[in-house]
Computed example of a mutant assay.
Amino acid sequence: MEAVITDAKRTIFARENGLLKDCLPEDLAAPLIRHLSRNTPEDIDEVLIGNATGRGGNLARLSALAAGLPLSVSGTTIDRQCGSGLDAVRVACHFVKAGAGSTYIAGGAESSSRSPFSSRARFSPEHIGDPDMGIAAEYTAQAYGVTRKMQDEYALLSYERSVKAHEDGLYRREILPCHGFAADENMLKKRNMEPLISRAKPVFQSGGSVTAANSCGISDGAAAVCVMEEQKARSLGLKPGLRFIGSAVSGVHPHYPSAAPVYAVKICVFSQQLRVPYSKINVRGGALAVGHPYGASGAALVTRLFYEAKRRPDARYAAAAIGSGGGVGLALLFEVLT
């Protein structure tokens, strides 16, 4: 059995307490589920949705019902913090390969604006250390020699790529307009980021290197993909964009969660060293400019790869990787289908 991605969509990403502030997580996930299952609603085996700051309960089942899927379609909610949406896609792919089912909707949804929690969950026991993500980013930068200059240079590159992708209309293909919005909130106002990045002050540690300008913002949004058994997809006349090859999960010290994806990718691609040039990483920008809706971000990575694969028929493989609180990294490797 081979698992393939046949379709992918996301909502716009909005700032916390911004354009999507009135939407609950299920309000964000349901339109995507409805769209992705529009041709085969009776064939969906299960809906898997990642979420990190929701109100509890089974968000995936709630979202499936809100989307109008048959009552027979079950749902599973996954919490791997920032890796939740990517893990939902991972689980769906492995389900298909194992023959547990043939069609899944998998992704993530996050409404930071509607979170009932005043503080975050614990990532690690106190005797090990449980730093907030901003402080953990400082620890990682210090441990791995990532300077302020390096962070600022990459932040500017990422912003420029995101702005260009938005202006070229590339984001429009991956966004499903819903709730009256069709463009990422941060992309609606073009700004000269270079002076903002260079002048920003450290926000997490005195004398540190992590600033509001070289960090991703807290956001609301959702993303999801349709994972299907390849022969079934082709029998339905669908043209898959990505074929799942494998996945890997890694754990590192909770002080260094940003480093965790590196080790996961190394495992996934069976490489001893990971040396990927900037020219091949987040080529259309990413969370620094567009936003980071925790549980949805990993599914958004796969969505971006799905559409990028259509633009890059020369590419052979694509990888999505993400790190999360507690020092966990997750990576998925795909073959590009042309």
Rank of each mutant, 00 (worst) to 15 (best):
L32E: 14
H127M: 14
G326T: 11
V283R: 00
M193L: 11
A296I: 08
S118W: 15
D168R: 10
G325T: 12
S247Q: 06
G325M: 10
L62K: 01
A182Q: 09
S198N: 15
A165I: 01
T147A: 10
A109I: 03
G18D: 12
D7W: 03
E2V: 11
G246Q: 03
F244Y: 07
A300I: 12
G99F: 05
G75V: 04
V262T: 07
H35M: 13
Q272L: 10
R90T: 05
A155K: 00
A106G: 02
N282R: 05
D314C: 12
D314S: 12
Y171H: 09
G145L: 08
M150E: 13
T140H: 09
G208V: 09
S271P: 07
T140A: 15
A66Y: 02
L59N: 01
A121D: 15
P41D: 15
H35K: 14
I105T: 02
L301Q: 10
I128S: 13
N192L: 11
V265T: 08
R38K: 15
Y154P: 00
F95E: 13
I5W: 06
S271I: 04
L59F: 00
Y317I: 10
M1K: 15
P313C: 06
G285I: 02
R15L: 15
R199Q: 15
D130E: 12
L274T: 07
V91K: 01
A299G: 05
Q273P: 01
L332P: 03
L157M: 14
D220G: 00
G323I: 05
G221K: 01
D220E: 03
R34F: 01
M193G: 13
G169K: 06
I135N: 04
G50V: 05
L36Q: 04
K201A: 12
L157P: 05
Y139Q: 00
I49Y: 00
E194H: 13
S297I: 09
F244C: 03
C23G: 07
